[in-house]
Amino acid sequence: MKKLVLFSCVFFTILGMNLMAIEAPVGEPAPDFVCNDSNGVTHALSAYKGKIVVLEWLNHDCPFVKKHYGSGNMQKLQKIYTGRDVIWLSVISSAPGKQGFCTPDKANDLTKSTNAHPTAVLLDPLGSVGKKYGAKTTPHMFIINKEGILVYNGGIDNKPSTDPLDIDKATNYVAKALNELLAGKEVSIKTSSPYGCSVKYD
């Protein structure tokens, strides 16, 4: 019987704040975190200063995530932008026993079977990174610029649905923001309503 090893993510508590109602604000420094990925490698956001970072909240069983993975849309974005030196971190904040929870092996299997191309898949079963950012849905997208400022917090695109046919009709906010950042411009659409299944916190 394999021992179930839980990778917990350290976060910096701010006393007195209602963690439940937190939303990481755009225009401010993105909340720092330290979190292990599915290969046991530790990632600290602060170590990525100088790089553009994308955080993608993930639950492979959620029909909204399936929309973007089944169609290849998410993997395409991951491949294009990691190829342009963007750090793409998929984050799984599902608690053990809840939908979407992954052991390291399961996370790696899913990355392989879906042909995903994130830089890493962060395992956040205690939900600390998710709650720090106020990640509400899967998918929920955050983009951090090279100076460590949060420049996008919201949905992946403007068509909240589970229908893959909506992808081509939609404005992809993530692609738009990354293109602007890579061209040295400011992100024009900084927030949108995230849509998806609720993140399965404890």
């Binding site: 069983d61 959620c62 029909p63 909204f64 809840k98 939908q99 589970t162 299944c197 609720s198 399965k200």
Partner: peptide, 10 residues
């Protein structure tokens, strides 16, 4: 519609 419990089914 979207109907959900712990999981969601469109």
């Amino acid at each position: 519609w979207l109907v959900c419990k712990d999981e969601c089914l469109p």
